[in-house]
């Protein structure tokens, strides 16, 4: 039994991880590890970086190909894709958000980790609407790049 089956929380070792260099470029982290019948991320990828063996296999991202365009974030039915880009001491995390009120560029929001604990603040740098899902980019302290996965406005 994996720990996340009990807790609902992935640990970093459950994930396919990019190199430091790939993180600097900005890539999509696919937090989707189970075999579920679903493939919109594969179809949405403009550079064919995301692939899966069959519709039930977990998606795999080719970080060399991935351009961090964020198109897969708003289409993922599981809201399980995040784009992370590290720049010096800072990191930019782009995540899906489906709550009111909507964050606006320039807002300072609470930055939450995978168990909803506030780990610091984030500056909203970009908000894009993909249907009713908001794709929000925040700038945070770089050391939390692989921890921050939610915001509170």
């Amino acid at each position: 039994m994996c720990e996340y089956e009990k807790t609902g929380v992935l640990s970093i070792t459950d994930l396919q991880l990019p190199t430091g260099k790939q993180l600097e470029k900005g890539v999509a982290i696919l937090e989707c590890v189970e075999e579920i019948p679903c493939n919109p991320c594969v179809e949405s990828c403009p550079v064919h970086a995301i692939s899966m063996k069959d519709i039930n296999a977990p998606p795999v991202n080719d970080f060399e190909r991935c351009i961090g365009c964020t198109k897969c974030i708003g289409i993922c039915p599981g809201l399980a894709i995040f784009v992370v880009k590290v720049k010096g001491e800072k990191a930019r995390v782009t995540l899906p958000y489906e709550f009111v009120p909507a964050p606006k560029v320039g807002n300072v929001v609470k930055a939450l980790d995978r168990i909803g604990v506030v780990r610091g603040e984030g500056l909203v740098t970009k908000v894009v609407k993909q249907g009713k899902t908001l794709v929000v980019t925040i700038e945070i302290d770089g050391k939390y790049a692989m921890d921050i996965r939610n915001i509170r406005v």
Partner: peptide, 15 residues
């Protein structure tokens, strides 16, 4: 957890 992990994760990151 019986449901998909991705659904559980959405809840957990809201606390």
């Amino acid at each position: 957890i019986g449901g998909y992990h991705v659904h559980a994760a959405k809840l957990r990151r809201c606390g």
